[in-house]
Design a protein around this nucleic acid. Structure first.
Lengths: 126, 126
DNA sequence: TTGTCATGTCATGATATTGTGATATGTTAT
DNA sequence: ATAACATATCACAATATCATGACATGACAA
């Protein structure tokens, strides 16, 4: 089956000697990581950045606030696609909007979003 | 290709008056966003952060370098799962590793990774 | 009211991703 | 060589995600 950690005590001298003993390392790092549900929430958040259409929208909105029709035009995408992605972005607290007559003017929620986008871009460009 | 803004010219006075005319806004932002292939690459990169298992691994490695078996144990995951996710993380330049005997010691590629992880965590916790 | 425009929601088929069992590779000790 | 161990790869079923067509809503003008 899989490796049962209870018998690690017998043979840990032979394993990963570059580190401390397994139990030490494992228990040390385990108590320093976030809770299960925070990882779930965080992965949902990052998932949003994992789609080129949404990234393009984020990129546009990092330049200036825009209404839906301008986003469609700038990206050459149909309205349904943009509207759906905006709904996802809204639901995940990545963009906010302001109704102005029949228009909706979208903008990024806060600077975290722009920061993450820009650090990511920097990373892939180096 | 060049947008069908031809019929926008007729009626743009009624639209988005809060902004400049549509053509102006659209052409202005269009020339300031990255190329198509960069969005593709960037979304692939961010996709990696969109999975709780991979985030947990990133979280662990932001504390200290670890071998595969310690990651399995700390996260209570089977070895195949961890190994698969490490392969994806490697392929996307998010972790690197060093073979030491039969062990593989993994670490984060650079500070961008830690930065993105931490800004994201900050964002969801506020 | 009727029509038109800007936007939002729902349903769906195509495609991608996930975790995992089975299996393979490579290392070290005996 | 054989065994035990650490890690990697392959294949696949379950699940999730994507773009889009069809339809709904809500604003404004005639």
């Amino acid at each position: 089956m899989e490796m049962k950690n209870n018998n690690l005590e017998n043979n840990n001298e032979g394993m990963c000697e570059i580190f401390d003993s397994h139990e030490d390392v494992v228990s040390r790092v385990k108590e320093r990581i976030p809770e299960e549900n925070e990882f779930a929430e965080l992965s949902e958040f990052f998932k949003i950045f994992g789609n080129p259409t949404r990234l393009k929208i984020i990129s546009l909105l990092s330049i200036e606030d825009l209404c839906v029709c301008d986003i469609c035009e700038a990206l050459d995408l149909n309205q349904t696609t943009v509207s759906n992605q905006l709904r996802i972005l809204r639901a995940n607290n990545i963009v906010k909007y302001q109704k102005e007559g029949k228009m909706a003017r979208y903008s990024l929620t806060d600077l975290h979003i722009e920061m993450i986008y820009k650090v990511g871009l920097e990373h892939i460009l180096e």
